[in-house]
Design a binder for these strands. Structure first.
Length: 803
RNA sequence: GCGGAUAUGGUGGAAUUGGCAGACACGCCAGAUUUAGGUUCUGGUGCGCAAGCGUGCAGGUUCAAAUCCUGUUAUCCGCACCA
């Protein structure tokens, strides 16, 4: 029998499909299991060798769960809206829908060749009007609950994509997708009020099983801080409010700073003696891109406001006010009280402008450097706060300001609202109509979906208008409220819209009355295990949690969190250890691997390559080792002997391996699970024979990893036409995981000097006696005094001697 | 700058309730099979001639440290004027 991967893999993929064994049942009495991978963007390049890593990992989970008796939902679909498709369409004058269709067909063929147990009957596509109808429906619910609003504001504008970006899409001043510089533009934009969910998004993390680094990243992104808003009276007769996390240092506030965009400048303009200089500074600040701001971040600039100053509410001292771009209008109140003695930025600014520095917490030398790490310090120069700790002072001053009415406790978040509009064609139309009389009016739900119109050109414009704006027939409509003339919204939703709820659709993908049936969601939710990339932590993962929490609050979904467990896979790098890319010439095509070595080998190698959560470089010859393992397993059929029980000498190895593989799969340690199977195979080969029962168990253990070859061997074992993937997962007996005899290392003063082999049930005294009697050990300890004897049961003995 | 992670043979990586470092695999060396190459099989393979030495580096705790503590270096990731 020769191992022919091409014939075997095709044969079993067809057989599984014909039998429909991977279809999830919506009306089942079995326990459910919902395994999820991030559905792919069907790009023109086709599948990348990185795609199969997470697919295979959760396929192993899904297959094992089915064998454990679960009704498993392991679905797939296409996240198909997005820029690359649109750009390709523009360049080649093909409709993006056509491009998408072609790319999906190719992806589907490639993924099917891997033998992943997806339920293809639930395949979804975010660009399908029957799908995006519900994306639009959810948007309307957000609008009706006041969480979608249109606002004129300063937005991130990508000079490459020629559209606005969400904060989450700007990385170090450039576009996370295309790398082009991001500049600021004032535009009227649709926004989603994710900030209303800041606290819920933090609190929910306590109830889910995510990696710590994912939780930390989301918490840092949301950026909760506790402090106070404090009112300072000004000489203009009004009140300037600041936000601070250090109200305890109020006595050390020697000046104030407001952001260049602060509205008070307009209010105070007639009083300001140096308005020209101020206007000049405002203009310079506005012109800076995100990137430039980051570049010059360390150098403090600013202008003092001549003619208006503020009064410190605790000591009545008059202090100057500056404008400076180190204060952001988008955080807090856009104004700060500056305490140079205990804040690095304020200190740098004070030094540059020669402003007084007053120490209010003892312990540093504030003339030399700011003393910021002062949580354990004692308050000084602070009137009634003197002698208190920082923490006590914080509480006391907050009580005091609330009592006197010049301030109150306040929690702030760094999280900004989500800019939810793109000036592009290939996205979901926003279902809103603008009427001069009625304002923004939602499209009635029964008119959904608002389909993308056919346009002649998807070309982008520099004026920041969507290509849809040119479609006057489509744009001009009537107001659903008053019937008068009105215009459709021409911006589309961002790439992240369709993926914010797609897992819900999987539970009931063909429902035409709702985005998913309540019964179906009640049965399937939450997702039990969701694997995806770290790069989505503050994008898709955060966005979809937000949508889900909103849907929960309005009673549309049954669980407060969408995903019970989240894991993250590492990237597969090129052979040279660099990221795979066309330009580096180190791309490995999965088609070639499947062709030459087979899907089972590819699956095994991608799992064996290293720690699942870490990046690992591809190595073709290392992969051949996995091919050898498959061939050696297949060849076991040549040394097959009868027997319906594990032979006594093989009970230890088999029970141990079943246990190891079972546990390792649950802990994402696929690499060591495969190593255990390899070890067992080596043991069997050394033994020279395998009986039918042993072959049955080995085959079931291998099945989740290399399902095609396992299925083939299973068929050869002739268990009445049953499928291997439908068999129960093998059980182990803990009492049989131990070998009959054990090897114990004997150390003298911590150094291994000998090994002794003894029966597994040996007593401590017997071990010590045998150890001391050992030749090599006797030489080491003779004539010396024995100080201590340590015995670690079943593992080692350490004899401590002196002299 | 702040926060987090990582560092183990020629290579990918095992082993962290402190208990034999290097499982498993690649590569390499030797032998067998083969007309030859490849394949396959068997054996060997951390370094050192040796005593010994070895988990980025320097200390420490312990009978015992890759694992715990202190300091330090390098790489990667996240955040980056958030008051």
């Amino acid at each position: 029998m020769k191992y022919d991967h091409k014939a075997i893999e095709k044969k079993w993929q067809d057989a599984w499909e014909k039998a429909g064994v991977f279809h999830a049942e919506n009306n089942s009495t079995k326990p459910k299991y919902f395994a999820l991978i991030e559905f792919p963007y069907p790009s023109g390049q086709g599948l990348h060798v990185g795609h199969p890593r997470p697919y295979t990992a959760l396929d192993i989970i899904a297959r094992k769960r089915r064998m454990q008796g679960y009704n498993v939902l392991y679905p797939i679909g296409w996240d198909a809206f997005g820029l690359p498709t649109e750009n390709y369409a523009i360049k080649n004058h093909i409709h993006p829908a056509q491009v998408t269709k072609k790319n999906v067909a190719r992806f589907k063929e490639q993924i099917k060749s891997l033998g992943i147990s997806f339920d293809w009957s639930r395949e979804i596509n975010t660009t399908d009007p029957e799908y995006y109808k519900w994306t639009q429906w959810i948007f309307l619910q957000l609008f009706k609950h006041g969480l979608a609003y249109k606002k004129e504001m300063n937005v991130n504008w990508c000079t490459g994509c020629k559209c606005v970006l969400a904060n989450e899409e700007v990385v170090e001043g450039v576009c996370e997708r295309c790398g082009s510089p991001v500049v600021h533009k004032v535009k009227s934009q649709w926004m989603l009020k994710i900030t209303d969910y800041a606290q819920k998004l933090i609190d929910g993390l306590d109830d889910v099983d995510y990696p710590e680094r994912v939780k930390t990243q989301q918490k840092n992104w949301i950026g909760r801080s506790e402090g106070a808003e404090v009112d300072f009276k000004t000489t203009a007769g009004d009140t300037l409010t600041v936000y601070t996390t250090r109200p305890d240092t109020l006595f050390g506030a020697t000046y104030m700073v407001i952001s260049p965009e602060h509205p008070y400048i307009e209010k105070w303009k007639d009083r300001l003696g140096n308005l020209d200089a101020i206007r000049d500074y405002q203009k310079k600040a506005a012109r800076k891109s995100e990137f430039e701001r980051a570049e010059v971040a360390k150098d403090k600039t600013g202008v003092k406001l001549e003619g208006v100053s503020a009064v410190n509410p605790v000591n009545g001292k008059e202090i100057p006010i500056f404008i400076s771009d180190y204060v952001l209008m988008t955080y807090g109140t856009g104004a700060i009280m500056a305490v140079p003695a205990h804040d690095t930025r304020d200190w740098a600014f004070a030094k540059k402008f020669g402003l007084p520095i007053i120490e209010v917490v003892k312990g540093g030398d504030v003339e030399k450097e700011p003393f910021t790490d002062c949580a354990s310090g004692e308050m000084v120069n602070s009137g009634f706060l003197n002698g208190l700790t920082v923490e006590q002072a914080k509480q006391k001053i907050k009580d005091y300001m609330e009592e006197k009415g010049f301030g109150h406790r306040k929690v702030n978040y760094k999280l900004r609202d989500w800019v939810f509009a793109r000036q592009r064609y290939w996205g979901e139309p926003i279902p809103i109509v603008h009427c001069d009389k009625c304002g923004y009016v939602p499209v009635p739900e029964e008119q959904l979906p608002i389909r993308l119109p056919e346009v002649e050109s998807y070309e982008l414009t520099d004026d920041g208008e969507s290509p849809l704006a040119k479609m006057t027939d489509w744009v001009n409509t009537t107001c659903p409220k008053c019937g008068g003339p009105a215009k459709r919204e021409t911006d589309t939703m961002p790439q992240w819209a369709g993926s914010s709820w797609y897992f819900l659709r999987y539970t009931d993908p063909h429902n035409d009355k709702a985005f998913a049936g309540k019964e179906a969601m009640k049965y399937w939710l939450p997702v039990d295990w969701y694997n995806g990339g770290m790069e989505h932590t503050t994008l898709h993962l955060l966005y979809s949690r937000f949508w889900h929490k909103f849907l929960y609050d309005i009673g549309e979904v049954p669980t407060p969190e969408p995903y019970a467990k989240r894991t993250s896979h590492g990237m597969i790098l090129g052979e040279n250890g660099e990221k795979m890319s066309k330009s580096r010439g180190n791309v490995v095509n999965p088609d070639d691997v499947v062709n030459e070595y087979g899907a089972d080998t590819l699956r095994l190698y991608e799992m064996f390559i290293g720690d699942f959560e870490k990046a690992a470089p591809w190595n073709t010859s290392s992969m051949k080792g996995c091919r050898r393992f498959v061939e050696r397993y297949f060849a076991l059929q040549n040394i097959l002997v009868p027997g319906d029980k594990i032979r006594p000498e093989m009970e230890g190895p088999f029970n141990k391996t079943i246990k190891k593989v079972s546990e390792d799969i649950e802990n994402l340690k696929f690499n060591t699970a495969i190593a255990a199977l390899m070890s067992l195979l080596n043991g069997i080969a050394a033994n020279g024979a395998i009986n039918r029962e042993e072959m049955r168990i080995f085959t079931l253990l291998l099945d989740p990893f290399a399902p095609h070859v396992a299925e083939e061997v299973w068929a050869n074992l002739q268990y009445n036409d049953q499928l291997a993937c439908q068999q129960p997962w093998p059980a182990y007996d803990d009492s049989k995981c131990q070998d009959a005899s054990i090897e114990i290392a004997v150390q003298v003063n911590g150094k291994v000097r000998a090994h002794i082999t003894l029966p597994a049930d040996v007593t401590k005294d017997a071990v010590l006696e045998t150890a001391k009697a050992n030749e090599k050990i006797a030489i080491e300890i003779n004539g010396k005094s024995l100080v201590k004897e340590i015995y670690v049961p079943g593992k080692l003995v350490n004899l401590v001697v002196k002299g």
